[in-house]
Design a protein around this nucleic acid. Sequence first.
DNA 1: CTGAAAGCGCTTACAG
DNA 2: CTGAAAGCGCTTACAG
Lengths: 336, 336
Amino acid sequence: MGVTLKDIAFTLGLSPSTVSRALNDHPDINEQTRKSVKQLAKKMNYQVNKMASGLRTRKTYAIGVIVPKIASHFFSSVLSGIQKVAGSNDYQVYICQTNESTKQEIKYISSLMAGSVDGILVSLAKGSKNLKHIKQIIDGDMPLVLFDRTSDQFKVPKIEAEDFKGAYRAVTHLIEIGCKKIAHLAGPDNLGASHNRLLGYKQALIDNKIPIDEKLIIPCDFDPEKGREAVRNLISGPIDIDGIFSVNDEIGVEVILALQAMGINVPQQVAVVGFGDFPICEIVMPHLSSVMHNPYRIGYEAAECLFDQINSSQKGKNFRHIIPSQLVIRESSRRS
Amino acid sequence: MGVTLKDIAFTLGLSPSTVSRALNDHPDINEQTRKSVKQLAKKMNYQVNKMASGLRTRKTYAIGVIVPKIASHFFSSVLSGIQKVAGSNDYQVYICQTNESTKQEIKYISSLMAGSVDGILVSLAKGSKNLKHIKQIIDGDMPLVLFDRTSDQFKVPKIEAEDFKGAYRAVTHLIEIGCKKIAHLAGPDNLGASHNRLLGYKQALIDNKIPIDEKLIIPCDFDPEKGREAVRNLISGPIDIDGIFSVNDEIGVEVILALQAMGINVPQQVAVVGFGDFPICEIVMPHLSSVMHNPYRIGYEAAECLFDQINSSQKGKNFRHIIPSQLVIRESSRRS
DNA sequence: CTGAAAGCGCTTACAG
DNA sequence: CTGAAAGCGCTTACAG
């Protein structure tokens, strides 16, 4: 099938070397030669064989992305952003799904490290605590960017949603509408994102002189079922809560459904705010207030940051890039 | 970084040829040799360079997937299924997102055809009517499987949800609960999936001796906003509908929200059934009845079918493989 | 059962 | 400005 450099060279009476240079815009090449080569290449529908050029140049023209789950609103949007940037750099994207398994994460990383990509983007599995495999990427001089589910252990670029401030705003808002006892359904604490949301929650309470009650902070591990359970316990127990800030919208939505199933009015008795601004916020009744981050942009900027490293062959600096978030107030926290 | 065949060969005092054969389980190789080679390879963490072996064998160890949109419940689940199969075949997956643009579709296909993959899975963009680029894949002898958004123009394997029967069951169910005037919010008619759902709708009416009223069939182009609009027109107009079957759940959910906004009781005045059984069905109130298909399995079987072609180097036969669907009845169509 | 040799298609230092 | 040559790491027909 394939048209090769040799074919073009033969047709034009040139050497493959010259054709290669012409196509790669090498400065030495005669303008006329370059033109005719490019013209013929186009006419013959020549496409460079990436395996061959990759073998020669030690470039793979591919990046790897490690995500916990493809089939989620957040990560599939992030992936869109990554695709966009990769496409315009003429790179392919290998998507690896860990299903929240550290074992899978390790496996994928060692496979990617075996020379199949030029750089790696990682969003950690929620259970990943021993992070030797991440260190391995850094030690192997492979460009790396962490996004969303990051870890402070590593001095590499991290792209995150504005988790702390977003959570802070959400909780401040709950306080402003009159909530005095606000529970937080928290995510896994080893992940940057959920940790920072928890810190934002606490800070908002502190700044408003509301005492922090550890019994109101319930780890839900991103599991909606645990969210329902937490609500049942919170309500049946002795504590009289009047507001809930949930680490994400999936849990937030379940919270609303669970409260309603118990005959509790949202937002009058308990107001609810989630995080993510997923489409489901506008489907549940009452609509769920939420912190809007921008997954597409998180992916976009993470990829740009990775390509900066790949193209400059400079190590990624240790910085944290925060994508702004914004509180979207809906009926679940609007009191008349 | 990389350990090569040569390194192993040198250490063991063998030739690279022998090492290669040992690792690839060539029958000629001495059992003892094979063992020691494999052992050392493991110890040295040898990973075959896919570019080099691909260049030699003309295999890419990659497949391409063309989807309209990654960030959707349906397609991201399909992709999970594809990933699973690809992974166990030790293949990479190149995901290409067309954003429903035929132009993008053409671009991606010509790029994939340039030798970067061993096979292609396609779900058509909704606007794609001129399908020369698909013909190009077939003419180029590239293994191909169409899934979900298929076209009957081509004699290739097609993996589809049970669209016709699913729709038939959904509409029959609406009739059974007493609906007499059932509208259908339809998808793009050039796509196999939406076309078959329309046919199922019609057949159910015919079999129940309900006349088909073309005014009750409203094309919504998979656009929830058009779904809302259709509902407004249907209700404000002279027609008195009492049931709606929508081509997918995203529109079905909007239908419920729109009906409620107009003060219409669901399901008592108008019952609603969607298609897809997305998680949002259990978030909207009342919960949306829907036809459950199995996107993960669609992806899984489409990929298996593609690997059958790749591994046997036989052309894909012209068949249609239907993944069973099942009606899930919820409050939106449960009348007391 | 093992090895030397050729070659996949490309890029690039070296020479002119 | 252009070409001949070497080599990236692998596989495999050919020879022994």
